[in-house]
Lab assay of single mutants.
Amino acid sequence: GIDPFTGEAIAKFNFNGDTQVEMSFRKGERITLLRQVDENWYEGRIPGTSRQGIFPITYVDVIKRPL
């Protein structure tokens, strides 16, 4: 089901994660935001896939912030 505490964002740019914990994505992908890790990073996942990880806040347009 849908978790009411998650947020939502759209990727503004392609992001290629450097490490296992970073999640790569392509511009235009819809991302579920799980939490804000710190002032620069979100943790999120791509709905319908097993992809999950952290990524820079500046790479996405936030539609709804996670609670």
Score class of each variant (00 low, 15 high):
26 R>P: 02
3 D>W: 12
37 V>R: 04
5 F>T: 12
49 T>K: 03
29 E>A: 03
66 P>S: 09
31 I>T: 01
5 F>K: 13
32 T>L: 10
30 R>V: 11
45 R>S: 11
36 Q>H: 07
67 L>I: 15
42 Y>L: 10
41 W>M: 08
36 Q>E: 11
43 E>H: 09
67 L>A: 15
43 E>M: 12
40 N>A: 10
16 N>F: 12
30 R>F: 12
32 T>F: 07
63 I>V: 09
28 G>Y: 05
48 G>N: 09
64 K>L: 06
10 I>C: 07
58 T>R: 10
43 E>L: 14
39 E>Q: 10
26 R>K: 13
46 I>Q: 01
52 Q>N: 08
39 E>K: 13
19 T>R: 12
62 V>Q: 04
19 T>F: 07
49 T>F: 03
58 T>Y: 12
45 R>F: 12
65 R>T: 14
17 G>H: 03
14 N>T: 12
3 D>M: 11
1 G>R: 09
66 P>D: 13
60 V>P: 00
40 N>K: 11
33 L>R: 02
53 G>R: 00
67 L>Y: 05
54 I>W: 07
47 P>N: 10
18 D>W: 10
27 K>E: 14
56 P>H: 04
7 G>T: 10
19 T>P: 07
55 F>H: 00
43 E>I: 08
22 E>R: 05
8 E>F: 13
35 R>F: 08
3 D>C: 15
41 W>E: 02
44 G>P: 00
13 F>C: 15
24 S>K: 05
19 T>W: 07
30 R>L: 11
65 R>K: 15
9 A>V: 05
3 D>I: 11
48 G>K: 06
58 T>M: 14
66 P>T: 06
41 W>H: 11
53 G>I: 02
33 L>S: 03
4 P>N: 13
12 K>C: 09
28 G>M: 03
21 V>N: 13
38 D>C: 15
5 F>H: 15
60 V>S: 01
11 A>R: 00
14 N>H: 10
50 S>E: 11
62 V>S: 03
63 I>E: 05
6 T>R: 08
66 P>Y: 05
49 T>C: 03
66 P>I: 12
23 M>K: 00
44 G>C: 01
30 R>G: 05
43 E>C: 15
10 I>Y: 07
52 Q>T: 09
59 Y>P: 00
60 V>W: 01
36 Q>L: 09
11 A>P: 01
25 F>P: 01
2 I>T: 14
65 R>L: 15
9 A>R: 02
15 F>P: 00
24 S>Q: 06
57 I>K: 11
2 I>N: 14
12 K>H: 05
4 P>M: 13
41 W>G: 02
6 T>G: 07
5 F>G: 12
20 Q>N: 12
61 D>A: 10
31 I>R: 00
6 T>E: 11
2 I>Q: 14
56 P>G: 01
26 R>Y: 11
54 I>V: 11
8 E>Q: 10
44 G>S: 00
40 N>F: 14
49 T>A: 05
25 F>T: 01
22 E>T: 07
1 G>T: 11
44 G>H: 00
47 P>K: 09
54 I>M: 09
2 I>V: 13
23 M>N: 01
53 G>L: 02
8 E>I: 13
63 I>P: 04
23 M>R: 01
63 I>K: 06
5 F>A: 10
30 R>A: 08
39 E>F: 10
6 T>Q: 09
51 R>K: 07
55 F>T: 00
34 L>F: 06
12 K>F: 04
12 K>D: 02
6 T>F: 10
41 W>D: 02
44 G>D: 00
35 R>K: 10
39 E>V: 11
64 K>I: 05
22 E>C: 15
34 L>G: 04
63 I>T: 07
27 K>D: 04
29 E>G: 01
21 V>A: 13
38 D>S: 10
9 A>T: 03
47 P>R: 09
27 K>W: 05
17 G>K: 05
18 D>N: 14
28 G>F: 05
14 N>C: 08
50 S>P: 10
34 L>I: 12
13 F>A: 13
63 I>Q: 06
21 V>G: 14
63 I>D: 04
19 T>G: 13
